[in-house]
């Protein structure tokens, strides 16, 4: 599924930042946190204002013509030879893994493959390309982590989040049971099969609550929306945020907050 051996580039001077539509509309703080972390690493962040959505919702729903037309609009956003970083394993996976298939046998085939090859999940990029060193300025706390299925299986970054959190000396990372099991989001799956998705997220929340952690972090806003939304509606004592928001807040000496 993932390239068997990932070849990380050397640390570049600039990156393209692909924010994703969920971050754009619902979790811009997570995007800003990602930008801040990159800039603190001395990297200039380029944000193409013409970016919209990677096309995944239509793609996984089977509407490939529509997915292709949206994805095509993204292909021209990254003219320079800089890496493209994405604060989401899911959108990253769409671009890195599925763009080549989606544009196969089209005039954009070469360009799509070229763009796909430059896509990196942002935490993976921070850890393995920037070799980030995090200094924890926050109060002692306990968190759990949910790595999204696409981050884990398409982008192969299951180890990254825990390693980054491990750098934070006041953060006690606890593991829920079945950490690798899907939270039940799955994009349109959550509305096409609401009972099954509901059964999955209720168990995910239960296992997170069982860790005793009051908050969890995650690589993907889809999972965040799902897990935190379930916890909130059902008054479960756990809240969540994007791992980038958490990392930025911990290393700035202030608590994470959502605007």
């Amino acid at each position: 599924m993932v390239d068997p051996i990932k070849v990380y580039p050397s640390k570049p001077a600039k990156v393209y930042f692909y924010g994703t539509c969920l971050v754009d509309m619902f979790y811009p703080d997570a995007g800003i946190a990602g930008v801040e972390l990159l800039e603190r690493e001395g990297i200039e962040v380029l944000f193409p204002q013409d970016q919209t959505c990677c096309g995944q919702p239509a793609y996984t729903s089977g509407y490939h013509d529509q997915a292709r037309s949206v994805a095509k609009a993204q292909l021209d956003l990254f003219p320079g030879d800089w890496p493209i970083v994405v604060p989401s394993g899911s959108c990253g996976g769409m671009m890195r893994k599925h763009y080549p298939d989606l544009f196969k046998d089209t005039p954009d085939e070469v360009k799509a493959a070229e763009v796909a090859g430059r896509v990196w999940e942002l935490t993976d990029f921070l850890l393995n390309v920037c070799h980030i060193k995090l200094e924890d300025l926050g109060e002692p706390t306990t968190v759990a982590m949910h790595t999204s299925c696409s981050a884990r299986r398409e982008m192969g970054v299951a180890e990254v989040g825990p390693k980054l959190l491990g750098q934070l000396k006041n953060v006690n990372l606890v593991e829920q049971i079945r950490p690798e099991e899907c939270c039940g989001f799955g994009g349109t799956f959550a509305v096409r099969h609401p009972e099954i998705s509901g059964a999955m997220v209720s168990e995910k929340v239960e296992t997170l609550v069982d860790t005793g952690a009051k908050e969890f972090v995650t690589t993907d806003c889809g999972c965040l929306m799902n897990i935190a939304g379930y916890a909130e509606k059902n008054h479960k004592p756990v809240s969540g945020q994007h791992i980038l928001s958490f990392l930025w807040a911990r290393t700035q000496g202030k608590g994470g907050q959502q605007s």
Binding site: M25, I32, V191, G198, G229
Partner: peptide, 22 residues
């Protein structure tokens, strides 16, 4: 829709990432 049978609705941010980056 079915989303909020199990979860709260996601909340739109005051400003999009596009706006904040701008």
């Amino acid at each position: 829709g079915a989303w909020t049978d199990y979860r709260t609705a996601p909340k739109l941010a005051a400003k999009t990432l596009h706006q904040r980056m701008k």
